[in-house]
């Protein structure tokens, strides 16, 4: 490859693949405006009534509320636990820091379905089946790797001399961390936070097994709705989700830069 120039067949291939990635998203958004009771693309007519229906549907609204509560609780818990751990790992205050860091990332490749059923059995044994806090803990376990990854990367890129300067100037470890290190890694932490929130919000596999009776998160609601039959209201609520995700992604990219996304 000559510097800069990328052959056009390659560009074409990449464009096609990108189109493939975007296709279902486009389809869902288009279907949400369809006037017919079933999906046609292109839509036979344009209407916003499905959005109105969704935003007034108590089932969906409750699901959105539940998802937000769960995501917020899980993210706060995960951040509170992960950040101190990452700080200790970054400074190699523990033996085999690298191994421990890898272990903390393990929930990423561990079969989610196994976590789900394991916790199902576990909560049944303890009589805690359907407990909200258990669900929060489960989500915290699942989203921790995202926070650990971005926090460790952020700390690694942080100039150690700055923390040392703060300490010599009279700040103890905690003050130095709060006044100098945190502001320095806030971009990474923000990216990790948003990814964790989104991941928790989107989580289905484990959540399926742990939901309190009568409650559901938004994705699970959509999941069960699809099982009952496909109609444009599903497309509408999905479109709202797509918009929210896109917005958050743009915000993260603005604030933290594209590198942090990778």
């Amino acid at each position: 490859m000559t510097a800069g120039a990328i052959a056009w067949p390659l560009r074409l291939a990449a464009a096609i693949i990108l189109a493939f990635l975007m296709l279902p998203v486009l389809v869902v958004v288009l279907a949400a405006f369809s006037t017919t009771d079933y999906l046609t693309i292109p839509p036979a007519g344009w209407t916003l009534r499905w959005f109105v229906q969704v935003l007034h549907d108590p089932v969906y609204l409750q699901a959105i509320r539940f998802s937000l509560d769960l995501a917020a609780a899980a993210t706060v818990l995960a951040m509170a636990m992960a950040i101190p751990a990452c700080y200790a790992l970054h400074h190699c205050w523990l033996p085999a820091s690298e191994t421990i860091a890898a272990a903390l990332l393990s929930p990423l490749v561990f079969p989610a379905v196994v976590i789900g059923v394991a916790l199902l059995q576990y909560t049944a044994m303890l009589g805690l089946r359907g407990n909200f806090f258990v669900l929060v803990l489960a989500h915290a376990v699942i989203i921790t790797p995202y926070i650990v990854r971005t926090a460790l990367a952020g700390l690694a890129g942080f100039d150690p001399a700055l923390e040392e300067a703060a300490r010599v100037l009279g700040a103890n470890r905690l003050s130095a961390f709060l006044l100098v290190v945190l502001p320095g890694v806030r971009a990474s932490l923000f990216a990790g936070l948003v990814f964790a929130l989104i991941t928790s919000f989107d989580e289905v596999t484990v959540t399926l097994f742990l939901l309190p009776p009568g409650q559901a998160t938004l994705p699970v609601t959509i999941f069960t709705a699809i099982d009952l039959g496909v109609d444009p209201s599903i497309a509408a609520v999905s479109t709202l989700l797509i918009l929210a995700t896109a917005l958050l992604l743009v915000v993260v990219e603005r604030f933290a830069g594209p590198r942090r996304l990778l």
Binding site: D159, E164, A165, V168, L169, G170, N172, A176
Partner: peptide, 13 residues
């Protein structure tokens, strides 16, 4: 500990 020694340090960077 460093923060109690009351020293000034000018870093190379």
């Amino acid at each position: 500990p460093s923060h109690r020694r009351r020293l000034g340090l000018v870093f190379q960077s």
